[in-house]
Nucleic acid binder design. Structure first.
Length: 430
RNA sequence: UCCCCGAUAGCUCAAUCGGCAGAGCGAGCGACUGUUAAUCGCUAGGUUGUUGGUUCGAUUCCAACUCGGGGAGCCA
């Protein structure tokens, strides 16, 4: 007798197996119970017929509440009438722990109620599928970088100062000194690239901005590759290869989950490098035609990003941004010093900016000027300037927002469902 | 910080012009041998977010507050 998972039932047709899980739903009709057992890998229907199981088990099942933990032994059968194609002829039922009045019903709920019950909401069919997609995305990203010889070298989460000097940071008491939760691992990633050639950091990132949109979290996961001896074009190719391979792998490995999530995969199948590229100036022309109210010189707003992405059938790369609206470490374009060698990748279907990257300023004097111009505390950046004093090389990298990527691939409206326990401006419980 | 919207049973929502607080689901009890959010019958379930105002009378109109949702800005 072996304990099998629902996702492997096809290998056990005709055998008697033991399944361990929770009661997802029960439909009882007189002398027959239909128990839907979920175990995290899937849901299967268990049929219990009176007279074919011990009488006390049949009666116990008739009052069994949703999410009761149960162990079932039964015969695996193929049955066209069952969802998923397989069914269990129940022979024995053990109630591990009965549950009553489970708060989340099999009906629609509002976001407030569901987020208050996030610890239980995670058991729902779509949320399970979403977490499995998220896990597959992370695995695909890590294996992509591993295949290409990158070393995972994570950045610290406590930092002594702002990385980019713009966003509002979360301050914490650090032994009578103020520390901040990191908003980016990039500067540390640059140190790693000078040590190891090509690295990526992957960890939680914190922004204390009071953003209230479906694309924002105060705590999110960011993956940031950084490559020595690389220019803007190198990391643009890296970004489009990464997205293409990750999307293909998730399509191949998580098709059932994407179906549960009702994701139309036809647009994902078109996600293949190379991606269309437009400069900021070209994007501004498109926006003038579209009449979005875009003002030249500003950053792209969410409606601007959507208008541009609608012109193409795959992610779009926008390059050569005005230096004034970008971070101090981005390298100026030699052909036009008002622009920087930066690149944002905009996902289709209104999911917005999923990647922001650039070639980094590698000239010590120019970087010192930029730090002075931005009125940043130079002493805090001395270690960073050392990277230019001792063997500076052209280098580049980007940051990928994991939850935005997962939201796009899974077709989820809001990024808060794409992380197990979302942290937003008005919500940090449970 | 700004703009818009919302709060009524455990959940999702309704309540006409300001006039007795309603339904479905869930829960409890009962019926049913193929249900797919099963169906059918019965029962219980309410300080209408809080405070104040207008009124003979407020779930309904007004104000403030609290909590939440969507968006802007900022960003991934």
């Amino acid at each position: 007798m072996q304990h099998v998972y629902v996702e492997n039932l096809r290998d056990h047709v005709g055998s008697v197996v033991t399944l361990k899980g929770w009661l997802y739903n029960r439909r009882s009709k007189g002398k027959i119970h239909f128990l839907q057992l979920r175990d995290g890998t899937g849901i299967v229907q268990v049929v219990m017929v009176a007279g074919q199981v011990p009488q006390e088990q049949f009666e116990a099942a008739s009052s069994l509440g949703q999410e009761s933990s149960i162990i079932v032994r039964g015969l695996v059968k193929e049955d066209a009438r069952a969802q998923g194609g397989y069914e269990i002829d129940g022979q024995d039922l053990v109630i591990v722990s009965p549950a009553h009045d489970y708060p989340i019903q099999k009906k629609e709920h509002g976001p407030d109620f569901l987020l208050d019950h996030r610890h239980l909401w995670l058991r729902s069919r779509k949320q399970v599928a979403l977490m499995r997609v998220r896990s597959a995305v992370i695995f695909a990203l890590r294996s992509f970088f591993d295949r290409r010889g990158f070393v995972n070298m994570d950045a610290p989460i406590f930092t002594p100062n702002a990385c980019e000097g713009t966003s509002t940071l979360f301050a914490v008491d650090y032994f009578e000194e103020t520390a901040y939760l990191t908003q980016s691992g990039q500067l540390y990633g640059e140190a790693g690239a000078m040590a190891l050639g090509k690295i990526y950091t992957f960890g939680p990132t914190f922004r204390a901005e009071k953003s209230k949109t479906r694309r924002h979290l105060t705590e999110f996961w960011m993956l940031e590759p950084e490559v020595a001896y690389a220019d803007l074009n190198d990391i643009m190719r890296l970004a489009e290869d990464m997205l293409s391979e990750v999307v293909a792998e998730v399509l191949a490995r998580r098709a059932p989950e994407l179906e549960i999530l009702e994701r139309d995969t036809s647009s994902l199948k078109r996600v293949q490098a190379p991606f269309p590229r437009v400069t900021y100036d070209e994007a501004a022309k498109i926006l003038a035609e579209e009449g979005t109210g875009f003002v030249y010189g500003n950053d792209l707003g969410a409606p601007d990003e959507t208008a541009i992405s609608k012109r193409f059938d795959r992610p779009v790369m926008v390059t050569h941004w005005p230096a004034d609206i970008k971070a101090f470490y981005m390298k100026r374009d030699p052909a036009d010093p008002t622009k920087v060698l930066g690149c944002d990748v905009i996902a289709p279907d209104g999911y917005g900016e999923i990647i922001g990257g650039s070639q980094r300023e590698d000239d010590l004097a120019l970087l010192e000027q930029r730090i002075a111009h931005e009125k940043l505390p130079k002493e805090a950046f001395e270690w960073y300037l050392d990277l230019r004093r001792y063997g500076s090389v052209p280098h580049a990298g980007f940051g990928l927002g994991l939850e935005r990527l997962v939201a796009w691939i899974s077709g989820t409206e809001h990024v808060r469902e794409c992380i197990p326990f979302p942290r937003t401006i008005y919500r940090m419980r449970p």
